[in-house]
Computed example of a mutant assay.
Amino acid sequence: MRLWNSLLNSFFLVSQYNPHGFVELLMLMIASVMIIIATILPADMPYLVLGLSLGVGASISILVREAIAPSSQTRVTQFATLLLLFMSIYGFAML
């Protein structure tokens, strides 16, 4: 029970002190789950569309945040985000 309480407290602290990063992380986690489901069950195309759209939204949000307030690892973050954005757009083009 203490483990769950500790995890819940750290969950609330992260969401309070870094809300934009928390929302971006949540979007990327949900996108990953949706794309994995679409890969396992190829007949479920809405999961793929939802996962790709969440990936595009999260990557644009990260790029805007980095443009407004650059972090210490700006180049790495921008490269990874642009890679995710191009992969998501390519996935939409292949649909």
Score class of each variant (00 low, 15 high):
2 R>S: 02
3 L>I: 08
3 L>S: 08
4 W>M: 05
4 W>F: 08
4 W>N: 11
5 N>T: 08
5 N>E: 12
6 S>N: 11
6 S>Q: 03
6 S>M: 10
6 S>V: 15
7 L>F: 06
8 L>C: 07
8 L>N: 05
8 L>M: 05
9 N>I: 10
9 N>L: 06
10 S>W: 03
11 F>V: 11
13 L>P: 04
14 V>S: 02
14 V>M: 03
15 S>H: 00
16 Q>K: 12
17 Y>V: 04
17 Y>G: 00
18 N>V: 12
18 N>R: 07
18 N>H: 14
20 H>Y: 12
20 H>G: 11
20 H>E: 12
20 H>L: 07
22 F>S: 09
22 F>T: 12
23 V>N: 04
26 L>H: 00
27 M>F: 06
27 M>Y: 01
30 I>S: 02
30 I>A: 10
33 V>H: 05
34 M>E: 12
35 I>M: 14
35 I>V: 15
35 I>A: 04
36 I>P: 03
36 I>R: 15
37 I>C: 12
39 T>C: 03
41 L>Y: 09
42 P>R: 07
43 A>M: 10
43 A>I: 14
44 D>C: 04
46 P>T: 04
46 P>D: 11
47 Y>E: 06
47 Y>V: 00
48 L>K: 15
48 L>P: 00
48 L>T: 06
49 V>M: 01
50 L>P: 01
51 G>E: 11
51 G>W: 03
51 G>I: 04
51 G>C: 09
51 G>D: 13
52 L>C: 08
53 S>Y: 07
53 S>P: 02
53 S>L: 15
54 L>V: 00
54 L>F: 06
55 G>E: 14
55 G>D: 15
55 G>L: 14
57 G>P: 11
57 G>F: 05
58 A>Q: 07
61 S>V: 11
61 S>N: 15
61 S>D: 13
63 L>S: 08
63 L>P: 04
66 E>P: 05
68 I>S: 09
68 I>V: 15
68 I>A: 10
69 A>F: 02
69 A>W: 00
70 P>F: 07
70 P>N: 03
71 S>E: 02
73 Q>V: 01
76 V>L: 13
79 F>G: 07
80 A>E: 03
81 T>C: 07
83 L>Q: 05
83 L>V: 12
83 L>G: 01
85 L>E: 10
86 F>W: 01
87 M>W: 01
88 S>H: 01
89 I>E: 14
90 Y>M: 11
91 G>N: 09
92 F>A: 08
92 F>C: 06
93 A>C: 04
93 A>T: 14
